[in-house]
Measured scan of single mutants.
Amino acid sequence: HNLTITQGKLFFHYNPKLCLSEIHKMEEVSGTKGRQERNDIALKTNGDQASCENELLKFSYIRTSFDKILLRWEPYWPPDFRDLLGFMLFYKEAPYQNVTEFDGQDACGSNSWTVVDIDPPLRSNDPKSQNHPGWLMRGLKPWTQYAIFVKTLVTFSDERRTYGAKSDIIYVQTDATNPSVPLDPISVSNSSSQIILKWKPPSDPNGNITHYLVFWERQAEDSELFELDYCLKGLKLPSRTWSPPFESEDSQKHNQSEYEDSAGECCSCPKTDSQILKELEESSFRKTFEDYLHNVVFVPRKTSSGTGAEDPRPSRKRRSLGDVGNVTVAVPTVAAFPNTSSTSVPTSPEEHRPFEKVVNKESLVISGLRHFTGYRIELQACNQDTPEERCSVAAYVSARTMPEAKADDIVGPVTHEIFENNVVHLMWQEPKEPNGLIVLYEVSYRRYGDEELHLCVSRKHFALERGCRLRGLSPGNYSVRIRATSLAGNGSWTEPTYFYVTDYLDVPSNIA
């Protein structure tokens, strides 16, 4: 807008934040220059609390790290170098490059900038070799853009010569660093050979998330399962459950009422301010606690030095998902009996873990797994792929695949051998790939016309006998059925096997 004052003059007093240069501009645009008398524009009460600059400061050096910015700028000295009290560095987070010096300023003089007072450097006698002032900004957020400017702080001049310097606002972004852990990993099994893994992005990506790394490792069953005799009275049979499938998407929606109208769909109840505040506090606490764990609990591995020492970490090797089922080394339970199943799973520490690289999504279907087997899954978020990966501390989750139908069934015939004193040795093959492992066998036998009897055969007993022995049988026709019990439950009964026990007292003698 054009402003013209045809008559009258300007009068400025007691404006401590208004620089004289701005008042002189007002004289020019209003056409009143030359009308004012000496005392109409006070030299001592206008701009006496402001830094009124008329020179431009330029930054000469900028260096960044993930949490620091090192700045240096060209030296500046007023005509009387004693008038320079120091520099004021202003900075704040700036997602967009549209910041002005006066953003967030209120009537009390406060604003949204963080201000650092910096002492002037030592003055050199040689004007050509003056030290460049600077400042190291610490405690910054990774991968965050900051708006920065600097200006001088000078003393009051009796001659009211307006001098000083100020830089333009520059924008500097800190470097990326390792992201925080992925949030809320959930693993479920939808079949006997697959596990579905879902997660949420890290709360602090500290860069642009480029991919996720998912490692999985087959877990050995508890050692007590191999040692305890679950045929003993009072000892509860062990059981394991597989990871249940995901709930429906509708039930997972946030901010939804727990109660549904019987007449149909209901609208979600909005969260109160107290609920939102509580969630923010919980989120802040979780982030602080995660940072504490990362800094205190997890110790970084030592990389190899120039002395030739090897990095103890196993090298990563990509495998196809079809090879995942046989990740671990199978060892027989008892070496003397080769027909026992290889369900003991000690994992070799030198073995390469299978892994998958996930790009542009937060889910993965891990296939080719062994049925009813526990897996430990390790999830890392990465925001750099080359020249070397920059990934987060791992988040861990466990899951067990679903049982395989008929995996616990005894394959092959049940054979028998009759000894003296009416002892019958029953023999059968253990299931080759049971659900988890076989903890015991149930032997059901009966003599024709009598009630059915049951015998429990422990895992250890089966390994020693290759089956079991029935003792003290009365003469007669017998039928026997056997079924295995694994961590997933009972298998199917075998087809009945028949044998006849004679009275050993009636056996004919070869003595003449």
Rank of each mutant, 00 (worst) to 15 (best):
E430M: 04
D204A: 10
G264E: 07
T386L: 13
H425M: 11
F298K: 01
T288K: 14
L464G: 11
W242H: 14
R483H: 13
K287W: 15
P300S: 07
Y230P: 03
S257C: 06
P354K: 07
D311H: 06
L232H: 11
W242S: 10
S398M: 03
S257M: 04
R353E: 06
R313Y: 06
Y259W: 06
S363F: 12
G374L: 10
F337E: 07
P244I: 10
I209T: 08
S344D: 04
N490C: 09
E362A: 10
N326F: 14
G449Q: 11
T272K: 03
P349T: 11
E495C: 03
S305N: 07
N490L: 15
S509C: 02
S268V: 08
R353I: 13
T272P: 08
A220I: 11
A484R: 00
D222L: 11
I438V: 13
C391P: 01
S398T: 15
P312T: 10
P332W: 13
G325Q: 15
P431V: 14
Y230F: 08
R313I: 12
T373C: 02
I366S: 01
A335D: 14
S284P: 02
K432G: 03
E290Y: 05
G412E: 09
L473D: 00
A405K: 14
S251L: 11
A405L: 12
L453F: 08
G374A: 14
V480T: 12
Y478P: 01
S479G: 05
G489M: 08
L369Q: 15
I276R: 07
S444M: 10
N208D: 14
T401K: 00
N383F: 03
E495T: 06
Q429R: 03
G308D: 11
L487I: 13
F289T: 10
T288E: 08
G467F: 06
F355P: 04
F215H: 05
P387R: 04
E247A: 10
E258N: 13
S305Y: 08
E356F: 06
W216M: 13
G308Y: 00
C231R: 01
S479D: 03
S444R: 07
A395T: 03
Q275D: 05
L379T: 09
Q275W: 07
V296M: 11
H294G: 15
Y448C: 13
R390W: 11
P496A: 02
P403G: 03
S262L: 11
N295D: 03
R481Q: 01
I366M: 13
E227I: 06
C269L: 10
D229Q: 14
S320E: 12
Y212T: 14
N422A: 04
E495K: 15
D229L: 13
K357F: 13
N360V: 12
L237R: 07
P354G: 07
L505V: 10
V297W: 04
S479V: 13
P245H: 09
V480F: 05
D311K: 15
V214R: 00
S344I: 07
W428Y: 01
P354W: 04
G264L: 13
E433T: 06
T333M: 13
V501E: 00
A395N: 05
S458L: 10
A407D: 08
C468L: 04
L440S: 09
N339K: 12
D408W: 00
I482N: 01
S239G: 07
F337I: 06
I276F: 14
P475D: 04
T497E: 12
R483W: 00
Y259Q: 12
F246Y: 13
P270A: 12
Y504Q: 13
T340Q: 06
P332L: 12
V296F: 08
S257V: 11
K460W: 06
W242P: 13
S341F: 07
D291F: 11
T347Y: 09
L379F: 05
K287D: 03
A309P: 07
T340F: 11
S458D: 08
S344A: 09
H416E: 09
E351Q: 06
R466A: 05
L280S: 03
S315C: 07
L277S: 00
I438Q: 07
H416P: 09
G476C: 00
T210V: 07
P354F: 07
E389L: 08
V439L: 11
E465M: 02
R481E: 14
L505W: 04
S474V: 09
S367F: 06
E224N: 12
R313W: 09
E442A: 02
D204T: 02
P338D: 04
A309H: 14
R313F: 14
E442F: 13
G322I: 05
G306S: 06
C267V: 10
L277M: 03
N295Y: 15
H211T: 08
L232T: 11
W428L: 00
D323H: 08
E362I: 13
E247Q: 12
N477S: 09
E389R: 10
Q275N: 11
S262P: 09
Y504K: 10
